[in-house]
């Protein structure tokens, strides 16, 4: 029998080699209608799993780049409902990789936890990641996600003691998101990532995704044998802000994956092919 996390397990196999690249995109940035295009571009560039951020007015865990993208998305009319519709649109256009919806609690709470989980599952979302929902507060969303067939990812940080690491890993039905250092997204180097990954690995066989501060190919390579996936957010949001967002997102993901040939493959979506950049 299949379980909600199967697609994530398949996308992030434990190979001991290079971690898979998990691009993060802010739904509605640069504008609401391009989100489906960018999801497809991220997959075409080699992304193994895509995180889609739902914009929120008060994103406590995000640095300046993602904050600004969220503000612009909201200003241009992005809503939770439209974000899910864009995921659904990408699915009908052939998006295959798992989608993890990253959202703060309040937009989900106002939508209704159960209603949100049902709507997300119907749109083709595989899993949820809620950065302001600690283990102690997780019961209700956990139940709602499970009933809707969604996996739940949990987060751990370098400050998390081993006892909590074990709890977080045990409750993850998706991956365990390992925060690479104390801080917010997009600033600083992932200096504490390796040590954290080793601690979690000793306690869990869930897929481990490292995020916060990863923006270069060399950092991806350096996590070989440690992480199963790396989340890259601010770098992708910067790319989504360029003149040709689909091409830029695809190119950055391909570069992070070390697969330059994917930059120029046959392109899906409306963006025109570019010969060179």
């Amino acid at each position: 029998m299949s379980s909600p996390g199967d697609a994530i397990l398949a996308a992030l196999p434990r190979s001991g080699g290079e971690p898979r690249v998990c691009p993060y995109l802010m739904a509605g940035f640069p504008d609401p209608e391009t989100t489906a295009d960018l999801l497809l571009a991220a997959e075409a560039g080699g992304g193994a799993l895509i995180e889609v951020g739902i914009p929120h007015s008060d994103p406590l865990a995000d640095g300046p780049t993602i904050q600004a993208a969220g503000r612009q998305a909201l200003a241009r009319g992005m809503t939770t409902r439209v974000a899910l519709a864009q995921v659904a649109k990408a699915r009908t256009r052939g998006l295959r990789v798992p989608v993890v919806c990253m959202t703060y609690l309040n937009p989900v709470a106002q939508f209704g936890l159960q209603e949100f989980c049902q709507a997300a599952a119907a749109a083709g979302v595989d899993s949820l990641l809620v950065p302001d929902l600690p283990l102690e507060e997780m019961d209700e969303l956990e139940g709602a996600a499970s009933r809707a067939g969604l996996a739940l990812c949990t987060m751990v940080a370098p400050t998390t003691p081993d006892r909590r690491l074990a709890m977080a890993a045990a409750r993850a039905t998706g991956f365990v998101y390992c925060v690479s250092r104390t801080g917010v997204t997009g600033t600083g180097e992932p200096t504490e990532g390796a040590a954290l990954l080793e601690r979690v690995r000793a306690l869990s066989d869930r897929p481990l995704v490292l995020g916060f501060g990863v923006r270069r190919r060399a950092q991806v390579v350096s996590l070989s044998g440690l992480a199963d996936g790396v989340a890259v957010g601010s770098r992708l949001v910067e790319a989504a802000g360029e003149d040709d967002p689909s091409a830029a997102v695809r190119e950055v993901v391909a570069e992070l994956c070390g697969r330059p040939e994917l930059t120029r493959g046959p392109r899906r979506g409306p963006a025109p092919d570019r010969e060179a950049r």
Binding site: L133, M155, R164
Partner: peptide
């Protein structure tokens, strides 16, 4: 009430 914050500060 409650405590809805990123994991990094939960132990603190």
């Amino acid at each position: 009430g409650g405590s809805f914050v990123p994991e990094t500060v939960v132990p603190a």
